[in-house]
Amino acid sequence: MAGGHIEGWSPESLEYLDACPVCGARTGQELLYHGLRDKFQVNTPGAWDFYRCGACGSGYYNPRPTPESVGRLYEAYYTHAHTAPLEYAQLSLLGKLRRILGNGYRNYRFGMHERPASILGILAVWLMPDQRALLDTGGRHLPKQPKGRLLDVGCGNGDFLLFAQRAGWEAIGVEPDPKAVEVARARGLTVHLGTLETLHEAPESFQGITMNHVIEHVHHPRATLEHCYRLLKRGGWLWIETPNLDAQGHARYGENWIGLDTPRHLVVFTDRSLLRLLEEVGFARIERLPYCPLCERVYGMSRALAIGASPHQSPPLPREERVLARQAEANARRRPEIREFIMVRAWKG
């Protein structure tokens, strides 16, 4: 199904798949893109082929870097960076008001004790459902109670671990990038260097596990989800967000869609394929989480890749693109299967 040499990569640094890494199907694989190059880090060598599974609909690169060689793709990755938020005194008057109201809502929603804060933030945010969705997603929908041990898989520089700790969780992380681990540990966080498989924790050790844009980076997603299942207590939950191959942004921007992130996103799920895999692993209940409006941002980043600009400093969308993004937003509210990202929580029975 795949073959050939990839420039800049030795034969032993690549692995070739003879089946879909999500469902195991060996036939019906479609070559979706040929010769994709890394548009986030333009110095990355290689041109990569991306396939779509005819059985489950998931997409994947084939060949791909091995677990031993994949680290070279992350040497300048964004997980290293940490930019501290502005101090309250440094904010504009409007910024101060937003901080006060946002803290008021976070204290109510997540059981935090952020200061300064106003209880009026609860009312203000409830009157702005899109803002509420953004704040809830930023907190990964952490339940206010009960709290316990929490594991963030692929925790990067530890930003979310700090958030979870302020919300009362005993939060630890695991991260394969040594530079990101160094940043996180310098912030006083408990972060283990390695992958989920190298983490030495007993079964049923955690009340919650979060994987924010991580599952698309792993070589064996089924094994990763099975490991998460074993680590969860009965009644515990797994929170996942990941790009959706059936997204409207992918349909519009094709190989420039940010969800492909060539070749770091080894596997790109569809809504159907991820929910099915979670069920097969054994999760008793799976819920799609409330919609978070992101089409305009994703369209802006994808267009930036298409014109050769930095996706992290995207130029403003032209008027016609903004109109399309807003129409996509309306469509995504009605149809979860075409949202830019899949965001679900799965519960262990």
Results as ranks from 00 to 15, higher is better:
C228T: 09
G46N: 11
P45F: 12
I258F: 12
Q327P: 02
L151K: 09
C292V: 14
D261W: 02
S273L: 07
Q29K: 13
C155K: 07
R334P: 00
R106K: 13
K147I: 02
I215G: 00
V323E: 13
V268M: 11
K348G: 04
D271S: 09
E279I: 10
T83D: 10
G102Q: 10
N157C: 10
A164E: 03
A171C: 11
Y16T: 15
K348F: 08
Y74R: 09
R72N: 08
P116R: 08
T83G: 09
R288F: 04
L225S: 05
L193I: 06
G121A: 06
L150N: 02
Q165N: 06
I122P: 05
Y74Q: 06
A171N: 00
P143N: 12
A133M: 10
G54H: 03
A76K: 14
G173L: 01
L127C: 11
L193Y: 04
P85V: 09
A186D: 08
G208V: 10
R345D: 02
G173D: 00
V323T: 11
E216Y: 01
Q145G: 09
P318W: 11
L317Q: 14
I119V: 15
F163M: 04
Q313N: 15
A171G: 04
D261T: 05
W169Y: 15
A19V: 07
L120V: 08
Y88C: 04
V298Q: 03
M112S: 15
A47N: 07
E170C: 07
Y253C: 12
I307F: 08
L161Q: 01
A25L: 06
P63M: 04
V267W: 00
P318E: 12
R333K: 13
I307S: 08
R26S: 13
L36D: 01
K39H: 09
I100N: 03
P178N: 07
Q90H: 14
F269A: 00
P45W: 07
P263D: 12
L151Y: 05
A55G: 13
T137Q: 12
P85A: 11
E280M: 09
G208L: 15
S310P: 07
D136Q: 10
R115G: 10
Q90P: 07
G282S: 12
R326A: 07
E197H: 14
R185D: 04
G308A: 06
R132V: 02
E87V: 11
F283T: 02
E241H: 01
L238N: 01
L294E: 10
I172P: 00
N62Q: 03
S273V: 05
R230G: 02
A251V: 11
Q145A: 15
H213D: 14
P143E: 14
H82I: 09
L199R: 03
G54D: 00
A247E: 00
V125T: 12
M112E: 14
R98H: 11
